[in-house]
């Protein structure tokens, strides 16, 4: 096992982790504000990737326009989901929202199959993203770099948003205590809607990146990354943006390292390791790495 090999595997873990982190941020934001585990988040990722396909390949828009349109489109999807499903449910037990999001996820997936067929479609990003960058023994692609940068920029941007802006203050207040925030004159509906808009927009952006990275998309693609980023968010402590990023990297790294440094036959145990790790982390740190001590008992 050469040094180059070890370095390459570490970079692979970082790249995969960035992808998970990107999806997990949106996930954790929504949880942070209204304690909703939104399983449909992964399906918004899927919608984002198909939007990219439509704008980029069918309509032939320039890339920056596509990126903008996908972000706006994702925000609209997020708002639509909030208005139609989660707002009427507000105040119901947590489990209710979780199950509703699962139902929503199944609904979106089946509609996807109905409208788009389950055939995977190829997806080509502009050539510049496909360029291979080689540094010594390590190589990666431009798109990987872009994903990593996007994840970092978004993380910093969101932390600033939550800390510095009026909307952010409203979000934190709503997260702290919905009723009190309302009494303090914060427009809860608008705050939560904004959160979903941001979450949807992040998911759609992740979908765009996902398509660019793997070059192939299908209506069921959201399920696994949704699940993994859910795990990432939990590991990081749901609700914490920095935690989601860390969680994403931990899961990505863990996956690649399990495959890369154990004998090959264990590659097939990849997901078992990830979830085993998850359970272990939860046992020793029941609130995740960055989570606040949870008040809700069962």
């Amino acid at each position: 096992m050469s040094g180059g090999y070890i370095l390459q595997q570490l970079v692979n873990g970082l790249i995969l982790g960035s992808m998970y982190a990107l999806i997990a941020i949106g996930f954790t934001m929504i949880y942070g504000i209204i304690r909703l585990i939104n399983f449909a988040h992964g399906d918004v990722v899927m919608i984002g990737s198909f939007m990219t396909l439509a704008f980029l390949q069918a309509l032939g828009w320039p890339f920056y326009l596509v990126a903008l349109a996908v972000m706006v489109g994702g925000a609209l999807v997020g708002v639509a989901i909030e208005r139609s499903v989660f707002r009427p449910m507000r105040g119901a037990p947590q489990v209710t929202g979780f199950i509703a999001s699962l139902a929503l996820s199944i609904m979106i997936q089946n509609m996807g199959i109905l409208l788009l067929t389950a055939q995977p479609r190829n997806f080509s990003f502009p050539d510049i993203f496909q360029q291979v960058i080689t540094l010594g023994a390590v190589s990666f692609r431009m798109v990987d770099l872009v994903i990593m940068l996007t994840a970092w920029i978004l993380m910093i941007g969101l932390i600033l948003l939550v800390k510095m802006t009026r909307l952010g203050v409203g979000m934190r207040a709503t997260a702290e205590n919905l009723e009190v925030a309302r009494l303090m004159g914060i427009n809860i509906n608008r705050t939560i809607m904004a959160t979903f808009a941001i979450g949807g927009s992040l998911a759609a952006t992740a979908g765009l990146m996902y398509g660019g990275k793997f070059g192939q998309i299908d209506p069921l693609l959201g399920f696994v990354p949704g699940l993994k980023s859910f795990v990432a968010a939990v590991v990081g402590g749901v609700g914490s943006i920095a935690g989601a990023i860390c969680g994403g990297y931990i899961i990505g790294m863990a996956e690649v390292l399990f495959v890369g440094f154990l004998p090959p036959i264990y590659s097939a145990y990849r997901d078992a390791f990830v979830f085993g790790l998850l359970i272990l982390i939860l046992l020793f740190m029941p609130n995740g790495l960055f989570g606040k001590k949870s008040e809700d008992r069962a």
Binding site: A268, D271, I279, L282, D296
Partner: peptide, 27 residues
């Protein structure tokens, strides 16, 4: 071990159990 967890965390951990059992049986 797992039942010390609460709410969502328990849901996630048991979801993990499904996948772990599946992977073990497969292999």
């Amino acid at each position: 071990p797992v039942l010390r967890l609460r709410g969502h965390y328990l849901a996630v951990a048991t979801l993990g159990v499904i996948i772990i059992v599946q992977v073990l049986i497969t292999n």
